[in-house]
Design a binder for these strands. Structure first.
Lengths: 300, 300
DNA sequence: TATATCAATAGATTTAAACTATGATAAAAA
DNA sequence: TTTTTATCATAGTTTAAATCTATTGATATA
């Protein structure tokens, strides 16, 4: 039977394409790694690695087996994590992925509770685009994602956290600025400032706006909500912001935030983890903490 | 990092609840296995096994980790299988699961082609109820299933093989016996003989019959299609049989097989394997052979 | 042509997994 | 009760193999 160490060596080579560096990453000497890889190739009767001078590459067979090897290593990791979790369920490292249009605005609300009530868990926060996050969750680099749920995420286990309304942001001088509520129809023929491609908020907000007959301002696309907010304050147009991004942020003075009459545009914020993840107790604890921390934020 | 051998020892104990037998199954001496398990427990700082005199049991932690261990061993198996498949894609052992209402009638049509065209694959056939088959596919005991598709199977990869009509079976003396086609309405108020619970054909055929206003004969439930056929021949009632079970079987003399006008009752026979299974080439080859072998069987 | 890089080879060392033999304990049998 | 049997743990030894250091060999680059 294959050994886990062999698989680590193989995947290290796949990662570094260099025997010396791979060996270093595995904390062994280069001859050790070379020798073990050779033995592996002999045992499988397959050439896994093409040793061109100064250019180490995987053969197609090598690529295929590296994929399988990663599966094994993931499962082995889960085993170790499960063992640790049994020793002390609510402890250990937990890597959480969040999207840029959510992370800075929700973290102040939830991290204090997480850190004090789940003190033995070390939280690592990773901000990235949805697609990258999903891939990192899949491969085990991340343990948990917090983001707006989409149907393509059905393969993961899902816990709904809260429903976040989107609100309209205008400069004080805009015709809509002094309404206490806006409606779907108010968007008609408005010029909307948008985020750049790849932000899921862009797709959600714009979907709503377009169906209301609003138009995108093609001359400009913001790289973050903060630039977007700045543009609105500078009277360049209006936009939709997730409500969390409007709490305790640059109030009335330069921007007016106006909620929608129902049906409000919203995004459904969920927590995802891999189905069958070994540390469900920690996941459930996080879910509970977050739900508790956000209650009251969207009232009235 | 954990060793695969340790996980084999652990799962062997879980299976045999006996150190000696487990050791034998792993081809090592009993002290070796005892010692390695102890080391594992020390390393994890967990008690995995309760050693009552003459009664070896797993602790809850042990149960949990055995599950994780099985995941790892499965992945490791996949690795080895993938390696072998790379050496020679269309070879090795292939365990196929089929249901009892399909296996005896389809195998004569497909096994000759499989054995001669995929001669380097050793086919093992397993006949079982749908629920057992799905579990065995999941755990890796089986590689492929051939059965009528149901929505609960969506987690597996699916290849449609053919659509099998159900036909009416009557004794020669039954009022419907001499029709060349029967219709949905002909079922109205008929007494239908059925298979016992657990056969998926029962649910499918009965679903169709009930909606046509037929009644089940509650005094009798057959344990196989052959008893069912025998009961029909003995003029105890009528039933629906999958068409494959009517080809080359006890013809006209004692039973009449009558096809339905469309819309015919049918079952959709599919081939399933685990998503991401390491030997897709073999799977696809089997799919092709089966599809080829059944073309023409349902014509006219 | 000289040098630097990088993987392979050789030979020694260390680790740990495996074995055999035996001991301890408690249930089952006499 | 005493003996026997079943079963897991312990002790000490052997064996296998993974690892190390030192070195060689091959090739691209200066």
């Amino acid at each position: 039977m294959i050994k886990i160490r062999d698989l680590e060596y193989l995947t290290a080579i796949a990662e570094y394409k260099h025997f010396g560096h791979a060996a270093e990453a595995c904390f062994v000497s280069q001859p050790t790694l070379s020798g073990q890889i050779q033995k592996l190739e002999q045992r499988l009767k397959l050439t896994l690695i093409e040793r061109q001078p100064r250019n180490v590459m995987l053969t197609p067979a090598g690529e295929k087996l590296v994929q399988q090897a990663r599966q094994v290593l993931n499962a082995a990791n889960n085993f170790e994590e499960a063992a640790k979790a049994l020793l002390d369920p609510l402890s250990g490292d937990l890597h959480i992925g969040l999207i840029p249009t959510l992370a800075p605005y929700i973290l102040p609300h939830i991290m204090p509770a997480l850190n004090s009530n789940l003190a033995k868990i070390n939280f690592y926060l990773h901000e990235n685009r949805t697609q990258d996050l999903l891939q990192q969750l899949e491969t085990g680099k991340l343990d948990i994602l917090i983001l707006p749920w989409l149907p393509e995420m059905a393969r993961f286990e899902r816990y709904d956290l809260f429903t976040e309304p989107l609100v309209m942001a205008t400069s004080p001088s805009h015709p809509l600025a002094n309404k206490t509520k806006v409606t779907f129809d108010d968007l008609h023929n408005q010029k909307i400032l948008t985020l750049e491609d790849g932000h899921c908020l862009r797709d959600q907000a714009m979907g709503y706006c377009f169906s209301a007959g609003a138009e995108e301002d093609h001359s400009f696309r913001a790289t973050s909500l903060e630039t977007l907010r700045y543009m609105v304050a500078s009277n360049m147009g209006i936009t939709l912001l997730p409500q969390l991004a409007t709490i305790n942020y640059a109030p009335q003075k330069h921007i007016h935030y106006i909620p929608f009459e129902s049906p409000q545009p919203v995004r459904e914020i969920s927590l995802l983890c891999r189905a069958g993840y070994a540390r469900m107790e920690s996941v459930r604890a996080v879910v509970n903490e977050v739900r508790q921390a956000v209650t009251g934020l969207f009232d009235e």
